[in-house]
Design a protein around this nucleic acid. Structure first.
Length: 426
DNA sequence: TCTGGGGTCCTAGGACCC
DNA sequence: TCTGGGGTCCTAGGACCC
């Protein structure tokens, strides 16, 4: 029988902050989204207060004051680095690993003895705690969906001590357990599908497990059919050892303060294009279509609203930031209308191809292309060495009034030497 | 005053072809 | 008076995830 483990960090962003500020342990802590807008991570204490994921900060200011909740802007440099450390350690516990998100990975546990698997899970937890300082839970089941569910059970029930193994559980116990978990807690069942299932009288995980996959495919989609099969131990979603190439790269941001002029929007679009172009080159891909959009604040319905996006097809696939910026700005000029208060803009690179399989055009200037590649390579190398943004296009501006707010960001403790924690000995 | 960002997959429906 | 049908490809939009 196959066996898959899901390692998932508890309250990941909050836990990362606590590693460098242990006085926050057992105290309520929140981490905010970009622009300090919404709650994206909550400590257990905050969850217990009933504060939901994704609520805007301004709606819970009263609770923040009353319960003295510590509020942080997000510090992605720190979280990414902590994630890498966790993943490296986890990978040593299995011959194959799929990194599923910044705070989760699946491990193939095939061949492990049932009797030992629980201990093994405990060992994974302890090792990550000791070496990185982060708390994780481990869920083990015969499919990914069951591993996810096991992890959910481990997180919600202290009795499991952070590890839940479903493989060896007897069926009575399993039935009792599954009848108590809502169908919306299953991986892949979102709000809309949950409502539809409840409508059919399918309320618990047990109900879903016992439902007919064929009927649910007709009612919903092949996705729900697969979930039912996976709940019954039939593998439909396989472990992806190698991360496949991305099919698109996007960068979009809300502005710290609204933008009005074409010039301000151009700055933002240039900055975002620079970011996605870098990601594109990292994957060694080229882009054929650049999509950009601008929008006003949809929450301010009393203000005039405008949303417009446009795709620009390049004459030739490219990864040269200058060419991408030129295309993006051409698009921007086409859709920009004055008189609106813009809140957000974005750039999406679609229709990617591999740079090693580039089609040669009839009028290609080979010398020009080599120059382009070596220039981009030099810029990337300099930014890697000196810190990103060291070399950038002047067009993205200096003052950047539109740039996002980050009022309460902790230092990049682990990735910038100037911001490393200092310990004083007496 | 203040409401995130980046990704994937699936499906329905239109365009087009023979 | 008579007005097909089936296949493929593409795209937009929805749903979901973290």
């Amino acid at each position: 029988m196959t066996s898959i483990a899901l390692i998932d960090c508890n309250n990941f962003y909050v836990s990362c902050e606590r590693v460098f500020n242990p006085s926050l342990n057992n105290k309520p802590v929140i981490v905010l989204s970009n622009n300090d807008g919404c709650v994206v991570a909550r400590s257990q204490e905050v969850k217990d207060l009933g504060i939901k994921m994704g609520v805007p900060l301004f709606k819970i200011q009263g609770l923040v004051k009353r319960y003295r909740i510590t509020v942080y802007s997000s510090n992605y440099a720190l979280y990414a680095d902590m994630s890498n450390r966790v993943m490296r350690i986890a990978s040593e516990f299995s011959p194959s690993q799929e990194i599923y998100s910044i705070d989760e990975c699946f491990l193939d546990m095939k061949g492990f003895k049932q009797a030992e698997i629980n201990n093994y899970g405990q060992q994974i937890r302890k090792t990550i705690k000791i070496f990185v300082g982060l708390p994780v839970c481990v869920g083990i089941g015969s499919t990914k969906t069951l591993a996810k569910l096991a992890n959910h059970i481990a997180k919600k029930n202290d009795g499991h001590n952070g590890v839940c193994v479903l493989n060896d559980m007897d069926s009575n116990h399993l039935t009792a357990l599954f009848s108590k978990i809502g169908v919306g807690d299953v991986w892949g069942i979102g709000k809309s599908t949950q409502a539809g299932l409840i409508n059919l009288g399918i309320n618990s995980v047990l109900d879903l497990k016992q439902a007919s996959p064929r009927n649910l495919r007709k009612q919903f989609s092949v996705v729900v059919e697969r979930i039912v099969k996976e709940l019954n131990g039939e593998t439909c979603i396989s472990l992806e050892k190698m991360a496949p190439d991305r099919k698109q790269f996007a960068c979009s941001r809300s502005f710290g303060s609204p933008a009005f002029s074409l010039n301000e929007l151009s700055e933002a679009i240039i900055a975002y294009t620079t970011r996605v172009a870098r990601k594109l080159r990292q994957q060694k891909s080229l882009v054929n279509t650049v999509y950009i959009f601008i929008e006003t604040n949809p929450f301010k319905q009393e203000e005039p609203q405008y949303f417009q996006g446009v795709s620009i097809a390049l004459t030739q696939a490219s990864s040269d930031t200058r060419i991408l910026i030129k295309a993006a700005l051409t698009g921007l000029k086409n859709i920009y209308k004055s008189g609106f208060s813009y809140k957000k803009a974005g750039v999406v690179l679609n229709d990617l191809s591999s740079s090693s399989q580039k089609q040669k055009g009839l009028f290609d200037d080979i010398g020009q292309q080599e120059k382009s590649e070596s220039l981009m390579h030099a810029i990337d190398a300099a930014n890697d060495m000196l810190g990103s943004g060291s070399i950038r296009f002047l067009g993205e501006g200096i003052k950047k009034k539109w740039d996002a707010k980050t009022k309460n960001k902790t230092p990049a403790y682990t990735t910038k030497i100037e911001e490393i924690p200092v310990a004083l000995a007496h």
